[in-house]
Design a protein around this nucleic acid. Sequence first.
DNA 1: CTGAAAGCGCTTACAG
DNA 2: CTGAAAGCGCTTACAG
Lengths: 325, 325
Amino acid sequence: MASAAGVSISTASKALNDTGRMGAETRERVKRIAGEIGYRPNALARGLLSKRSFTIGLLTNDTYGRFTLPVMAGISDALVDHGVSVFLCAIEDDPALAQTHVDAMLDKQVDGIIATGKRLDKRLPVDLSNLHVPVVYAFTEGTQNSVTFRSDDEQGAKLAVEWLAMIGRRRIAHITGPEDFFSVRERAGAYHQVAGHREPVLYGVWSESWGHEAVEQLWSRPGEKPDGLFCGNDQIARGAVDALRERGVKVPQDVSVIGFDNWEIVAAQTRPPLTTVDMELKELGRQAGLTVLALAEGRPVEPGVRKLPCRLIVRQSCGGRAPGE
Amino acid sequence: MASAAGVSISTASKALNDTGRMGAETRERVKRIAGEIGYRPNALARGLLSKRSFTIGLLTNDTYGRFTLPVMAGISDALVDHGVSVFLCAIEDDPALAQTHVDAMLDKQVDGIIATGKRLDKRLPVDLSNLHVPVVYAFTEGTQNSVTFRSDDEQGAKLAVEWLAMIGRRRIAHITGPEDFFSVRERAGAYHQVAGHREPVLYGVWSESWGHEAVEQLWSRPGEKPDGLFCGNDQIARGAVDALRERGVKVPQDVSVIGFDNWEIVAAQTRPPLTTVDMELKELGRQAGLTVLALAEGRPVEPGVRKLPCRLIVRQSCGGRAPGE
DNA sequence: CTGAAAGCGCTTACAG
DNA sequence: CTGAAAGCGCTTACAG
């Protein structure tokens, strides 16, 4: 490259990086020739000097990708303009595999690591607390003094239940996942706050068939039936909607149903399509990305848990109308 | 590191790499001390010499991850033992974004690139044909003289239709996606080969509602109804199963239904769970990974398209029994 | 205004 | 059997 432009290698370097002092024509000429011959500096050599690899690692145990992909999209989106590329490491729940991946990334001098998972209340099977690179947690439990990003499940659940109340539903039941999930308890707490304690919460598993079964339980009880269902995720909501249809109960005319997750494949294919709560995982990824970057550059970042607000996605399973409509 | 062991830096290097000649005790001592202080060589410095970064890039335009994640899992699985980490770049269908990612990876001296997508008959929006690093294509269209891995859709479709025939189905209809998809035409061709040309193929879109609608069409025609449905993907199959249930047609007693993709979230949650064709994407990823690695190491690899066999996953939507049962 | 030199952390011939 | 030197491709003081 330098030889092509007829200058020394150091002059070429300075020209391209807009550093040092030299004649404007020289700088222009070097840049022009670099462009012509498609010169691109070797990031490895650059990294050796600068101690920055412009590389970060994303560690996840969410094999299925339900949570990881949107988070990854946000990270990538935020960092691509800064020239940083991201290593994706799917580690299942295998501590040895996790360690292998972490070691490989550290060898490659990653500027930081983002740990992400599928539960707010579980740790990844690897200890990241004493690394010499910054670590940020997203949608998984962090450590003391770490920066952790998570969705605000309480606020999201309130959004859902308040929406049901707002469109006139008075007997709102809550069908959700296993009680040992932190987010289940948080959503149930918010449900109780808004809807009161008249109706019990139905805890179960994260499947369509549980949504189905819960509706059977609710509708085979004596007394008044619910006119609104707040479901812990979209799969449960879909099972519930299907069960209601099979019983001849009309959604949304007779009962409004609302889900959680906004998992398109489920929410959009339900008949009718589900109104649901979106956890804004892409935004969460974006912020996590910008935060590791800040830490990598030595900028100060306040440790602690950051809760990001959820957003209500209005489709047809509740009736009512979209805000502002 | 070297100083800790009281040897020169070159001796340390040779000890750890099992190269050069030295006393066995010296070698052992260096290794032991390296282990104790947790020494790990800087891969950037190493890469600068060796011209190998032990890094590859995965380029995909499958935002949703339906195809990319299993492929990625296979790649990672195959390469982690070789110490290679993988950059994931989701490029949507944006040529500028794609180029940015490719440039960033080339700067980082990736040893190779795997391009993957969501259709066998579409190119990624970026030209990878004249890179100075090896490129392998997986589940996307490659270029002249490239190595491309894809599923054998014809064989997969035969597997499905032969299974329906084997369990006694005689009037098998085929409900599938848009005819302009190469894989749709290939699967339809295989269907005709096995089932004959008595029944038309119903082309549509890749959605549950199309599966629904197609069943309405078939069952509102005069004459005999099908006793077997081969669906172009699991979503269509699920829609069909739901429509049949709503009509009071029993699956699998009256009609056997078979899907394609083995997308767990759809196939396993259908009532009854879907028998379907798995494209073995993880295996495809594994082979693609080993192939870029071979190319990166300069080992010879025959160019061309490699078709990988699909596998039948037997659940309950067809009746009959699993092979060997 | 420009270039020679040192150095990032390693590996690999080459001397001793 | 071990170490000093050169060099991978850059950047950054430092001379000229």
